[in-house]
Write a protein that binds this DNA or RNA. Structure first.
Lengths: 144, 144
DNA sequence: TCAAATTAAGTTGCGTACAACTTAATTTGT
DNA sequence: ACAAATTAAGTTGTACGCAACTTAATTTGA
């Protein structure tokens, strides 16, 4: 009767699918900037801060560990999106800062959120509501 | 003032984060069954069907292409979770069917959705509402 | 003070995702 | 009937995520 294992019913499959669909819509827009989605997240984090940020801080902001970030940042440095340098104060940590190119593409990136909002087809209040619900859910899941 | 590029505001970052958080909660439970999350999705699809399913059909159900599915199914066959065989009627297509082991672990898997629902900490009506909203969003995004 | 513990970043290995491509089988349109 | 188009899987190459591990620097505590 009520089979709990049905694919269509599962919240996490919805999240998985929506996440992939989002990614597919972002990909062509980001490609124009020479970015993947995780690289875009790094750029968002850097654009948001006036100063350089450590790899550890980036990891906290994006919830990614060094196993993901180290090669990702290395690729981004090779594309001249950012610089990396050992901290003078603590030789263990690495400072990540925007390159000129990295700063320049910000203006193009500013157009992206509005385009994506339009593609969701959601009225603003529903968009905000959904955002809030997901934020609550994230908090609960992180506590588990 | 209202910077549209702020990480915290973006719906897609929420989806990205929640999706990862979900995955982390699933991982230890699925590890007991010897499954990854995408492998679990394949098993859900197979458990749901009385007969064998083609790779193409699996791809439609899970929204994955053969570039992802072929190696994934090959790994699952090696773990004796399922069988693969060329269709007699159309030699291009491959039939995927459950092995005895694949059928057996279903009973253990049945406990997972309830555990995950508990971990969301959401009341049932909110859980269903969120599920619906994401389903709507998926439809809109797929149309774009 | 100085060995032990902790911390930050990086490396290795595995499993997705997906674009772009190849191969083989089937369908098609004349 | 049969060449051209289409279709289903699979392969190759790139980029995440993350577990487990290594290395080097800093902190700690007896």
């Amino acid at each position: 009767m009520s089979d709990t294992l049905q694919l269509e019913k599962q919240l996490c499959f919805r999240l998985y699918s929506v996440n992939k669909a989002m990614n597919r819509l972002y990909a062509p827009m980001l490609k124009e900037l020479g970015l993947t989605y995780p690289q875009y997240l790094v750029m968002l984090a850097l654009w948001d801060k006036p100063k350089a940020v450590t790899v550890k801080q980036l990891g906290e902001m994006l919830d990614l560990d060094s196993g993901t970030l180290s090669p990702l940042l290395k690729r981004m440095e090779k594309q001249a999106l950012l610089h990396r340098s050992r901290s003078e104060f603590d030789e263990r940590s690495v400072q990540v800062s925007l390159s000129a190119h990295g700063k320049n593409i910000r203006s193009k990136a500013k157009l992206i959120p509005a385009k994506m909002f339009a593609k969701t087809g959601l009225p603003l209040d529903e968009f905000l509501m959904l955002n809030n619900k997901l934020d609550q859910l994230l908090t609960r899941l992180s506590e588990s």
